[in-house]
Design a protein around this nucleic acid. Structure first.
Length: 313
DNA sequence: GCGTCCAGGTCTACC
DNA sequence: GGTAGACCTGGACGC
């Protein structure tokens, strides 16, 4: 194994631990990555297709943040790949994002005031790539969280690429090329995807033929990127906002109930019908920081329920 | 055990 | 442009 070590700086306040290991249990890049005592072992695939094992830990503080990254590869990386890796890790950590304006807004907002105290320095982070975002979005559709986990873990176990480094074994998300040639019936059976198998295979085929990368989508307008993602089979507005590098407010039935209780102090009779109403109110109240409000609230439900004396989860 | 219900959306047909 | 109904499957629940 070849090792490349580098350090990244982040815009303070920045909490490495809360960013890569969110309290609600959402993973950073892959479902089966390992987090232990402030260190995370994960993996990413370069545009060339080369898998890279990653070991990251904080070397600084929330106010002087620095992250040390060790990258493990079978072959030594060429200079262009080293640059790509460093740039993409910085992006995946949202290290350059300045959220001080969000914290100013939070000082004047009774809900956000509580969550930013609990999650000080946490960043929202993008998906590893379009396909892994699509896998998450598709498996979340019409399924309780436990079942979504089951589908994602089956996909990783059956079609993921296993890489071993630094005494850890990590399964990388399957590539679109790999799933594009798998029979739909096989996907249904082995990964328990049900009707989602057809959609996921169609997405894999579309990505294989040619589709903008996350970086390409970032260069588009928010609406343009969303529209492009909605061209993929089985990807509607909710899923597009999960995949898009432009931060959205991806309300589903579950999160609509939570935000309805927070914003209107009552449980909606018909959560699906209340989605647009909740979205409007959130955008009026939090504006361009709605996406950050979304991620902070959902990662602080236990504390928020206790502090506001509301049943949120 | 067994049967029934329905979930953290999306698409399509129909009006 | 709006909306009802179908969609896989397995976990939760009642009996």
């Amino acid at each position: 194994m070849h090792t490349l070590t580098f350090e990244l700086e982040a815009v303070p306040p920045y909490s490495f631990e809360l960013t890569v290991h969110k309290p609600a249990g959402w993973s950073w890049l892959i479902r089966n990555e390992v987090y232990k005592n402030g260190t995370i072992w994960s993996a990413i695939r370069l545009y060339s297709g080369k898998p890279v094992g990653l070991k990251l830990r904080s070397m600084g503080t929330v106010h002087e943040p620095r992250v040390r990254c060790e990258a493990f590869t079978r072959q030594e990386l060429i200079n262009e790949e080293k640059i790509e890796l460093q740039e993409r890790i910085g992006k995946k950590l949202s290290a350059d994002e300045d959220i001080r304006e969000f914290y100013s807004l939070a000082q004047r907002d009774p809900v956000l005031h509580e969550v930013v105290k609990d999650l000080y320095g946490m960043r929202d982070t993008p998906s590893a790539d379009v396909f892994s975002g699509a896998i998450l979005a598709v498996t979340l559709q019409m399924a309780p969280w436990k079942r979504s986990m089951q589908m994602m873990e089956s996909l990783l176990e059956t079609y993921g690429e296993r890489i071993a480094f630094d005494s850890q074994v990590i399964n990388l998300w399957p590539t679109p090329e790999k799933l594009a040639i798998v029979e739909v019936e096989e996907l249904q059976k082995k990964c328990k995807l049900g009707y989602r198998a057809q959609n996921l295979q169609s997405i894999a085929q579309t990505l294989t033929i040619g589709f903008p990368t996350l970086e390409d989508l970032e260069q588009m307008s928010t609406e343009g990127a969303k529209k492009k993602l909605m061209e993929l089979r089985g990807i509607g507005g909710y899923s597009a906002e999960i995949i898009s590098p432009h931060r959205g407010f991806p309300l589903d039935v579950w999160s609509t109930q939570i935000f309805h209780r927070l914003l209107f102090a009552e449980t909606p009779e018909d959560p699906r019908a209340a989605i647009s109403k909740v979205r409007r109110r959130a955008e009026e109240r939090w504006g361009e920081w709605s996406g950050y409000a979304f991620i902070y609230v959902l990662n602080d439900l236990n504390n928020l329920s206790r502090k506001l004396k509301l049943k949120l989860n």
